[in-house]
Amino acid sequence: MTHQKLSRNAFLDFDNETVIAWLFLAPALLLLGIFVLYPIAYLCYLSFTAGSFTRAGVHWVGLQNYWRLFLTPDFWQVVGNTIVFTVATVLPSLLLPLGLAVLLDRAIVLRDLLRVAYFLPSITSLVAVGLGWRWLFQTEGPVNQWLALLGIDPIPWLSSTVWAMPVLILLSIWKQIGFNLVVFLAGLQTIPISRYEAATLDGANAWQQFWYITLPGLQPTLIFAAVTTAIFTLRSFEPVYVITGGGPLNATNLLVYYIYEQAFAQFDFGYAAAAATLLLGATLVLVSVQLRASRETD
């Protein structure tokens, strides 16, 4: 009898704790549902419809919008631009801050000042930076003036199908370096100094210590930085909007800007929602890769 009474009391305590926990979670879950889950669900629904938000409304078209995406050459050009932009941004945005982080981690003089200086681009408005970048790379801008001092003819940076994309990639790398630098510096603090001391006693040089101690120790940090940088580049919109407008000849049109154009210039919301849903799927794949890799490294 006593055992049953104790079991009942434990069940009631557990039940009360569960109710209290759900009460505390309810406001956050409500906000999550309203501002995150509902928009995602509505986006997926919208991708199966056509029409506009007028009195005529929208109507169900099934997979027609997705079929149009796969048959549209402009969409595949945009996807190719996005892949090139992402790959060309992610690799330097990992290698450069990794090297800088290793150097700053061992430096004593001006380390905090340099850390702040490198991080400043990450907190700068992309619109303001884009305007400055456009001024730098215009035909008669400072960059071409500096090249003229070296005897190099002016380059039409923003009106060339060859040079416009590298300008955007350079801006994206410059913007991302500071964030990844701080992330790598934090990751380096988690590697025990005793490992480096033992490696030094064993005669390992700086490169061997970096390859066999630093890189394995930074593996979870590298995965996190790679995924976050890829997501950052996939959602790039402001530089394209401010600097090139997707031109010339669609050479710098990225997926987010393409979605914006289809939705708010062409008012083809169903088609834009289908493209946005594919972008959401790619982002979820990256997040799942990061989570799986994090579990394997734990």
Results as ranks from 00 to 15, higher is better:
Y257T: 00
N253G: 06
L126I: 08
I193W: 07
T139P: 14
L103F: 15
L12V: 04
Q64N: 11
T18K: 14
S93K: 09
A88Y: 13
A273V: 03
I259G: 00
F14P: 07
L31Q: 02
W133A: 03
R8V: 04
L32H: 02
P216Y: 07
L280E: 10
L149E: 11
N253M: 09
N81V: 05
I193F: 15
A88E: 13
I231G: 01
I223E: 10
I123Y: 13
L255Y: 08
L94G: 03
L185R: 03
V183M: 08
F48Y: 15
R134Q: 08
A273G: 03
E296A: 12
I193P: 10
A117S: 02
P97T: 11
T82V: 06
Q176W: 14
N253T: 07
G178F: 05
P239F: 12
S122Q: 08
L114M: 10
F11K: 11
R292E: 05
S52G: 07
R295M: 08
L158Q: 04
I193H: 14
R106P: 11
V78E: 10
S194R: 13
I20H: 15
L98W: 04
S294Y: 13
P154E: 03
R68V: 07
Q145A: 10
L222K: 00
A128P: 02
W133F: 07
P121D: 08
T161V: 06
V116A: 09
P192K: 05
Q219G: 14
L96N: 02
R235T: 12
Y118E: 02
G132E: 00
L158E: 05
L150M: 07
I193N: 13
A265S: 15
